[in-house]
Design a protein around this nucleic acid. Structure first.
Lengths: 189, 189
DNA sequence: AACAACCTGTGTATTAACACGCATATTGCG
DNA sequence: CGCAATATGCGTGTTAATACACAGGTTGTT
């Protein structure tokens, strides 16, 4: 890894942390490149040296989250469905204000799509389709994927009263039931 | 006032706040240009673009304090000896850790000298020498000046138990007594 | 005394960030 | 609607900050 110029790191971090802060306090739709730059105490031109626009910035941050979620999903192999589910939900708890801001936004659709297709992708990986399913797999995946997203959204928007572990546990339970019903013989890794 | 380049302000502030932090936590003598730069997340070269060395940096910060003390002394004209003394001591209370660090240092002598000669200068301004003093004025000034410094040092190093107002009040009382004894007819502005 | 580890101050070439200005959207309010 | 205020994205020239290297100096330890 070649060393990155300290100025680049400083600018990027100023932009990103300011952006996250504003996302929490004001919401994505209110954010402009101009006021990010002002708050981050950098020139507006500097912003454009690093990102195309605020969507590009958001995209890159979302990608970082997806990467971390990927790691969690990889760990899940070793720890089983239940513990895995808890880990997954914990991640959203830790970054609750970030995801809440995005779920609230009128105009951060790329985030929903990215998260959904990632989720579906992971589900797909873990479903061994040796047996004959009752439901078409694509339909089932979409079903479980959007269901997961729905619960996540409720959770980060504080629409559920249960604590995070209860949520995670119950979702895992629902997964199990659905998979058993749909793929009679087996199975979830 | 012409606008100063944002980069300059950022560098200077990073250096100064890091320096003050280290002064508090580690003491002046332990500080090097190298570790200021590292902590401030700037190149060492950048430090030298703004300051000659750590003594120069300290000097400039001390000068800023002297400027603010000057303002306090100017206000003292209007509020009288007692209130003035309280204001003066309050200033040291507010920047206690800074001054404590300097009093502790083996090697920040310029600070002592600057503060002492400032103090003596202010005393000199306020002593009306119409009457015939018992003591030579330079001697008296040095006497009162170093006495003040001594009490200040004790205070910021937590060597006295009294609260700041008690200290200020008693020092003002001592001033009054000394001046009355030494300049029989008058007077402290 | 010798040695290692660390610091200083400076030179050089490179570049990210800067100030400023401009033409063109976009927004929102009367 | 129309118009003012605000935001965008970019071009240009300038400069502060950077990485890196180097030749001493300081410190403290064995």
């Amino acid at each position: 890894m070649d060393k990155i110029d300290r100025r680049i790191l400083k600018s990027r971090q100023a932009i990103q942390s300011t952006f996250l802060d504003m996302l929490d306090k004001e919401g994505f739709d209110e954010i402009t490149v101009r006021n990010i730059s002002e708050k981050a105490n950098i020139g507006r031109k500097t912003f454009y040296l690093h990102f195309m626009d605020k969507y590009d910035l958001l995209d890159k941050i979302v990608d970082e989250h997806i990467t971390q979620l990927q790691e969690i999903c990889d760990q899940k192999k070793d720890i089983g469905l239940m513990q895995g589910s808890i880990l997954w939900f914990y991640y959203f708890e830790q970054h609750k204000s970030f995801f809440a801001a995005l779920f609230k936004s009128r105009d951060a659709s790329s985030f929903r799509n990215k998260l959904l297709s990632f989720t579906i992708g992971e589900l797909n990986k873990k479903l061994n389709v040796d047996s004959q399913p009752i439901i078409d797999k694509p339909i089932f995946l979409k079903f479980l994927g959007t269901a997961t997203m729905g619960v996540l959204e409720s959770y980060v928007l504080d629409e559920v009263d249960s604590d995070i572990e209860t949520v995670a546990t119950q979702v895992a339970e629902l997964y199990k039931l659905n998979i058993q019903m749909t793929f009679p013989n087996i199975g979830y890794a």
